[in-house]
């Protein structure tokens, strides 16, 4: 459970993060996609040539824990847009938008990668802002927050398929929710949980490459479930399928 208090996130920090986000998504418009190896990637820890883009569009399907949804068991789909932008010295920027229209998650982060034969490793740090609103069916609710995700990825290239294992920590920096005229905030820097993903990236048909992944998240707070106002201080389990088509 998040511990709530009535303090606010610093304005300067929010402006800096918003600027970073806008800059990354807007930076380099007009440059063309380019891959050093010829095989595009999104999650695989590989080197992206400087000033080149890699885009992907797909979907995620998360099964919320029955502790929260109780009788209803569904795989909640979300649109998943990913953009990478190459930087010098094995670095690149990673921007991602996950949207269910009523709730959205926008992240921007940096990656560094290193290859060793068929293996490669990557390290990254993402800063995410999420927000949601619900004003129908007995709800007059909205919420938003900031989450950080430090991550490590290990990759293995079989030749036909690129396999990867990514693990990331989930750090909740800020949470605010409203119901009607009432408001609750928290800026406790909280370690909320971890996620682990196995994925493969490969050609599907002709030059179309796909990401096909399975991610499990053990966390006390998952932004995608904000409207259920969880009170559990327990690590709940969220399995998630990820499918992405590289553009």
């Amino acid at each position: 459970m998040i511990s709530f208090s009535k303090t606010r996130m610093g304005h300067t920090r929010r402006v800096l993060l918003a600027g970073l986000l806008a800059g990354t998504l807007g930076w380099g418009v007009g440059t063309t996609r380019s891959q050093e190896s010829g095989s595009p990637f999104i999650y695989y820890p590989s080197t992206l040539p400087a000033k080149t883009w890699q885009l992907a569009l797909g979907a995620t399907f998360t099964t919320p824990p029955k502790e929260l949804t109780e009788e209803v068991q569904v795989r909640a789909p979300a649109i998943d847009f990913h953009a990478l932008y190459g930087l010098p010295s094995h670095f690149y920027l990673d921007g991602r938008v996950i949207s269910q229209l009523l709730q959205n998650h926008i992240s921007v982060g940096g990656r560094w990668t290193r290859s060793m034969g068929d293996f490669s490793v990557g390290a990254g740090y993402d800063v995410a802002y999420w927000f949601g609103f619900l004003t129908i069916g007995g709800f007059d609710s909205k919420a938003n927050g900031w989450i950080n995700y430090p991550s490590v990825t290990i990759g293995y290239n079989t030749g036909d398929v690129r396999l990867l294992f990514k693990t990331e920590a989930i750090l909740n920096l800020f949470y605010r929710s409203y119901v009607g005229e009432n408001e609750v905030e928290s800026d406790a820097n909280t370690f909320s949980g971890m996620s682990f993903m196995l994925a493969m990236e490969q050609p599907f048909w002709k030059d179309t490459h796909v990401t096909f992944g399975f991610r499990v998240t053990y966390t006390k707070f998952n932004w995608i479930m904000w409207s259920l106002y969880t009170t559990f201080d327990r690590y709940l389990y969220y399995p998630e399928f990820i499918v992405g088509f590289m553009l």
Binding site: D160, V161, Q202, P203, F204, W205, K206, V210, F212
Partner: peptide, 8 residues
């Protein structure tokens, strides 16, 4: 079965 390894 498309022209690569993965099928749907």
């Amino acid at each position: 079965h498309p022209d690569h390894l993965l099928r749907l």
